[in-house]
């Protein structure tokens, strides 16, 4: 059974505190200004009839990856469990992948290669969860193997109503926002 890593983000629990963002920055030693995840607050309505959705967003590790397709060197590739990675030693910084990502999930590091969320594969390989998942004080983030029906993430996606970002882009995202 081949793994398929995915993440569920519980927008009912998330308070938008940014702990996931800071944890990611320190875990992955991101450069100043570099973000692999970020928080979006979307407010609808007029006072006092308001609703707000808070989302912790990151690369969706899409099943259909325009970013990988657009990469001329193979630097952008699909790694273990469908995780979309950039091999910086192949990256020319041509930014075709960025131009093709509908989610703005990638950025250019000061050294000139493109960086993005790795699902903390280096931690996952050591049996740990991603840094953002582990620090989240509200336990809003659930990471795991979607291919394993018993995994918490598969259970959540099966049980809870959810949405993905810009389904119309046809990228088949694997970050699911529970509503």
């Amino acid at each position: 059974m081949t793994k398929r890593y995915a993440m569920a983000v519980d927008t009912r629990r998330c308070v938008g505190c940014n702990a996931c963002v800071i944890a990611c920055k320190t875990e992955n030693a991101l450069p100043e200004g570099g973000f692999r995840d970020w928080v979006v607050q979307e407010v609808h309505g007029t006072f006092p009839d308001l609703s707000m959705q808070i989302r912790s967003e990151r690369c969706n590790h899409c099943a259909d990856t325009p970013c990988v397709a657009a990469c001329p060197t193979g630097a952008s590739h699909v790694g273990e469990g469908g995780v979309v990675l950039v091999n910086r030693s192949k990256c020319t910084g041509c930014k075709a992948c960025m131009a093709s990502c509908p989610y703005g999930a990638r950025y250019v590091t000061p050294q000139g290669f493109v960086d993005k969320c790795t699902f903390c594969l280096h931690r996952v390989e050591r049996g740990k969860g991603p840094a953002c998942v582990e620090t989240c004080p509200t336990r809003s983030l659930t990471f795991g193997d979607l291919a394993d029906p018993a995994s918490p993430v598969a259970q959540l996606v099966a049980r809870r109503s959810h949405a993905v970002l810009q389904p119309e882009a046809g990228t088949r995202p694997h970050v699911f926002f529970l509503t």
Binding site: V68, A69, A70, C71, P72, T73, G74, A75, S89, K90, C91, T92, G93, C94, K95, A96, V108, Q111, G112, F113, V114
Partner: peptide, 26 residues
């Protein structure tokens, strides 16, 4: 000039990715 990682320009010519117009172009 547009490449952010100029030293790695040669990487264009170690791969041919048919899905990538950038590669075709190169």
């Amino acid at each position: 000039l547009d490449l952010e990682h100029k030293l790695f320009v040669w990487r264009f010519y170690l791969a041919f990715r048919w899905t990538s117009p950038m590669s075709w172009g190169a």
